[in-house]
């Protein structure tokens, strides 16, 4: 009891301290790096709260992919205007501190009040847990995501696709290569890639399969695959194209198509909309989701409509 409480207190203090450093730190670059550290500490907090699915998602997406996106954007801004690198962009508003404290107190009061409520006997979560056997997966989070709250997951894929399309729409036509082509590449990088990229695919597929009965699932797997894509485009193995190739267009909408297609098919087959006919269907939808999560994230990082191998 004692020692675990100490760990919780340290994690909580670490989160708050890092958050303060992120918003009030003098250097923008440092703030971004500390934000990534914040995400990793948050992943530890999820693990402490018995939510390993969230811990993996936070580490892979919240810290990893978001951090890569932030750093890439920072680099592009510096490239566009190197003189402004030193500016801190920290304003001074007398209102900021009192408003921040007040909202913090408000959220704290809401949370404290909610903790005083007696725990309900039949929450949606307990119902979902009880009905888990019917779904064919034993990881309750995967069950909820795909079976009980399928609409959320479907719309989430829509949001991700919209974000990609929106980013394409606002991007200027000028092509931008994120790779460092003018600098010779150290020999170690190729060796690392030849090991790590196959491993990301392996880990992605493992996470997808494990998601049925253990922590994991399409989102974590997709994020790991996207990380492989990020590595490849960062080292110039994958270069941006001006248009999205047909295959990649199909891949972008594959998750939405398979999930909604399956849902509609079940509707016409006399079952409920978006219900899935068995475990095989869950894994099929999850595979499609994984691929359709990985590609837009990698493309968003590369800030390109499409990617192709360097040799082509």
């Amino acid at each position: 009891m004692g020692i675990s409480l100490v760990i919780d207190v340290l994690l909580a203090l670490g989160l708050v301290g890092l958050a303060l450093q992120v918003v009030a730190g003098p250097s923008l670059f440092r703030s971004i790096v500390l934000f990534v550290v914040f995400g990793l500490v948050m992943a530890l907090a999820w693990a402490r709260l018995h939510a390993p699915d969230l811990a993996m998602a936070e580490a892979a997406i919240g810290a990893g992919i978001t951090g890569a996106l932030l750093l890439m954007t920072y680099r592009r801004l510096v490239e566009l205007n190197p003189e402004k690198r030193g500016e801190t962009y920290l304003g001074s508003r007398w209102l900021a501190a009192p408003v921040g404290v007040l909202t913090g107190v408000l959220v704290g009061l809401i949370g404290w009040a909610a903790l005083q409520l007696p725990p309900g006997d039949t929450t949606a979560g307990t119902l979902a847990r009880d009905a888990l056997d019917e779904t064919g997966v034993s990881n309750p989070v995967t069950g909820v995501l795909l079976v009980f709250r399928g609409y959320d997951t479907l719309l989430e894929m829509g949001v991700l696709l919209l974000a990609f399309l929106g980013a394409r729409a606002v991007a200027s036509g000028r092509a931008h290569s994120p790779g460092t082509s003018e600098v010779s590449e150290p020999a170690l990088v190729g060796a690392l890639l030849s090991l790590v990229v196959p491993l990301t695919i392996l880990v992605g597929i493992y996470l997808l399969r494990a998601g049925g009965h253990a922590p994991g699932g399409a989102f974590q797997a997709g994020a790991v695959l996207a990380a492989g894509g990020v590595l490849l485009s960062l080292t110039g193995r994958l270069v941006p194209t001006d248009h999205t190739p047909l295959v990649q267009r199909l891949v972008l909408v594959l998750g939405l198509l398979v999930f909604s297609g399956m849902g509609l098919f079940m509707l016409f087959a006399g079952s409920a909309m978006l219900s899935l006919p068995g475990t095989w269907a869950i894994y099929l939808v999850e595979t499609a989701l994984m691929i359709s999560i990985a590609l837009p994230l990698a493309l968003l990082f590369a800030q390109a409509p499409g990617l192709k191998g360097r040799g082509h």
């Binding site: 600098v183 150290p186 170690l188 990088v189 690392l192 090991l195 790590v196 491993l199």
Partner: peptide, 20 residues
Amino acid sequence: LLGLLAATVSCHLIARHSIR
């Protein structure tokens, strides 16, 4: 092993960048 690999390569890259 993965930790070793990541540490080696990132250390090498940071050191190289700093020298350049």
